Simulated scan of single mutants.
Amino acid sequence: LIGPDRAVFAHSNMIYNMAILLKFTDQSLQGILRFGDLMIPQPLGNSNDMKFTLLGDPALKIRFPEFNVNTTMLNGIDIEDFSDTIPPGSFLKIKGKITNKDDGSLQTDFNGNVYLKIYAPPTMRSTLGNNGNPVAEVEVQDSVLVEGTATVERGEFEMQVVLPAKYYENFGNLKLSWYAENGVTDANGYYNQLMFGGEPTAIAEGNEFLDHVKVYPTAFSDYLNIELPETGQSVTYRIYNTVGMEVYSTKSRYSGGVEQIHIPVLSKGMYILNVNIAKGSRNFKIFRY
């Protein structure tokens, strides 16, 4: 823990913290950086440096994850080719892999779990500028929209999440933050080039079939009725809670008409039902009472 042991003006505090963060993100220091190195040289270069204290062993090396987590595909599209704006309420099918930090090679011997946090677009915050100090503008991205987890097999994984259906007036980039572990070593990474915002949508990736799907009653206790047009395609139903975690899924090859599905006991509250076929998916708000 590094922190001030007496009152420090916000501007000096910001400069000190930014200097420490720059050391943390310096790739050349990973593997050799110690806690004491964060205090040297003194970031501020004045008496305010004496107001910060390290509570810990200065000789202790700081451990960084050994591998990278890379986002590779989104809704069946290569992540580098994905250019659509993602609206609130969207269903996301994400693929990724664990790679070597030096050469980018797939780590086929990595089997474990991967954890995801999707952050809302960044916002600007300001310090108060007390006692004539300059006001500092800081970009902050700390609002978590969705959390998820998946199994990593031979270095690769796939995950499905649903974004909250809340209106976002200001458009901005989401941040997908990853951490993976297998009990022996770990990996981390992020991707922040996905534009997000606007009106919530009921159809994340639609077609004529999905336009005619109906779900009732939307407030249910044990059973849901799903009305489908005729199709020979396999249909997957997934239910997500309000933070985007999958809580139920089942598959069907129903040929058309009304299918009644039994839903296991869920806590009371709102959920998102995702109806998925090979060519797209559609989300419905449902409520368990």
Results as ranks from 00 to 15, higher is better:
G104L: 07
A165S: 15
Q107I: 15
N133R: 08
G155F: 06
V135T: 15
A165V: 09
S105Y: 03
T149D: 09
V146W: 11
S90G: 09
L106T: 09
S90Y: 11
I98A: 04
A150D: 13
T123K: 15
T151P: 00
D102F: 13
Q160C: 12
K97R: 15
N130D: 09
T108E: 15
E156F: 00
P88E: 09
I118G: 02
S105P: 00
V138N: 03
Y115I: 08
L163D: 06
I118F: 01
L106P: 01
K117H: 08
N111S: 14
N100R: 11
E137L: 10
N113H: 07
G89P: 04
S143K: 14
G155L: 07
L116I: 01
D142C: 06
L92G: 08
E156H: 01
V138Y: 01
F110A: 11
Y115R: 12
S126T: 12
I118W: 00
G155K: 02
T149C: 06
L128Y: 01
G132I: 02
Y119N: 13
V152E: 11
R125E: 15
I118H: 02
G89Y: 02
R154A: 14
L145P: 02
K117Y: 05
S126D: 09
P134T: 06
V135P: 00
P134E: 06
T123E: 13
G132R: 07
L106W: 05
V146N: 07
A136C: 11
N133W: 05
M124G: 00
M159A: 05
V161L: 09
G96Y: 02
K101C: 05
G132P: 06
L145R: 02
V161Q: 12
D102M: 12
F110R: 11
D142T: 08
K101N: 14
T108D: 11
I94R: 01
P164R: 10
A165P: 08
N111W: 03
V135L: 03
S143P: 00
E147D: 08
Q107M: 15
G104R: 06
F110C: 10
Y115K: 12
G129F: 02
E147R: 12
V152K: 09
L92W: 08
L128H: 00
V161R: 04
T123H: 10
P164H: 11
Q160L: 07
Y119F: 15
P164W: 09
Q141Y: 07
E156I: 14
Q160Y: 08
T151C: 02
N100H: 13
S126N: 14
D103I: 02
T127E: 00
